[in-house]
């Protein structure tokens, strides 16, 4: 995609309130859904056992359930996965004891010739994981604010974090609405998005900073808006090309990567789109609003201290 900088007249600024409103409403509704509907926590976050039964030929859910019943077990749920439904994933909420899983494994090894994969968890482990993930994000956010404040300025840091939270919440909301399973790789995906979102925002901010240094005098909202818009147009080609290539990668994983990577890559694709949207329509505009307020404050102070008699320009 080519964007002619001279001719392209995309106004990212004019509709900023609509973007804020759209994201605000989405997140608001999302948070309500999150607190009522909640997330569809996978076995990683619940107490229980999942057994992946692999066969050489396609199986049906009834077949798998029957095989379990033959040895005296009744799974709480059986789903078929794999390209030809050759994997039956049976979940046992509450979990099986070690001897029981061993019995199941040896039984299916005899029947299908493959040892099934077994995962067992107690909720303590899942809860700890989720807690760790939240702590990690908070620490990362603090670190990022610090770094951006040192390299840029504090207001950029704040805006970047707003965009980051926006993206992380966005994926959580999508997963809550779709009731898609949240597992450990999903957490990895959310954290990747956090990294990508910040990467994307920093690239835009870097251009704003550069363009700001070319400006002789930036005194009000209109000046700032012009600089921000110019920077966004200038980085637009990069933003779109980068997100396209990464979406190629994540999309190929989603379509071809197999069951194990599906949730992960779906979260990535959603997060990448949200990340690009937020860097283009939320982060820079946020900075614009904060910076305008900051400039106004500075000017008022100046007016009070240096030129108390002069009317405001």
């Amino acid at each position: 995609m080519n964007f002619d900088h001279g001719e392209t007249k995309i106004d990212f600024i004019k509709h900023r309130k609509k973007f804020f409103m759209f994201s605000g409403i989405f997140i608001f509704i999302g948070v309500i859904l999150l607190s009522t509907l909640g997330l569809n926590l996978g076995i990683d976050f619940e107490s229980g056992t999942t057994i992946d039964v692999l066969s050489d030929d396609p199986v049906t859910a009834n077949e798998v359930i029957e095989e379990f019943e033959n040895i005296g077990y009744s799974p709480d749920n059986v789903v078929l996965v794999g390209d030809n439904n050759e994997i039956g994933r049976a979940s046992f909420i509450g979990g099986l004891a070690q001897e029981q899983t061993l019995e199941v494994q040896s039984h299916f090894d005899e029947v299908y010739g493959h040892t099934p994969g077994v995962s067992t968890v107690t909720p303590i482990v899942g809860e700890e994981l989720a807690k760790n993930a939240v702590i990690s994000v908070l620490i990362a956010a603090a670190g990022i604010i610090l770094y951006v404040t040192i390299r840029f300025e504090f207001l950029y840091g704040i805006s970047a974090i707003v965009a980051l939270c926006h993206d992380a919440l966005f994926i959580l909301v999508v997963f809550s609405v779709g009731q898609m399973e949240v597992n450990i790789p999903f957490i990895a995906a959310v954290l990747t998005i956090v990294g990508y979102s910040i990467n994307d925002t920093v690239v835009t901010f870097d251009r704003i900073r550069e363009n700001m240094s070319y400006e002789k005098k930036v005194k009000d909202f209109d000046d700032l808006a012009r600089v921000v818009n110019k920077s966004l147009v200038q980085t637009l080609a990069r933003s779109i090309n980068t997100v396209l290539t990464v979406v190629f990668a994540a999309g190929a994983l989603f379509i071809l990567g197999g069951e194990g990577l599906r949730t992960f890559s779906f979260a990535l694709v959603i997060g990448l789109v949200a990340g690009t949207y937020s860097s283009l329509f939320i982060a820079a505009q946020m900075w614009l609003v904060l910076k305008t307020r900051h400039l106004k404050k500075l000017r008022n102070r100046k007016v009070e201290t240096e030129q108390p008699d002069q009317p405001e320009a």
Binding site: I135, S136, I144, Y147, V148, A188, L191, N199, D200
Partner: peptide, 17 residues
């Protein structure tokens, strides 16, 4: 700048993951 911020996030993942 973009890479350092991402490395920062990845390091946190490594330490706490």
């Amino acid at each position: 700048d973009a890479n350092i911020t991402t490395i920062l996030a990845a390091s946190v993942l490594y330490v706490y993951g």
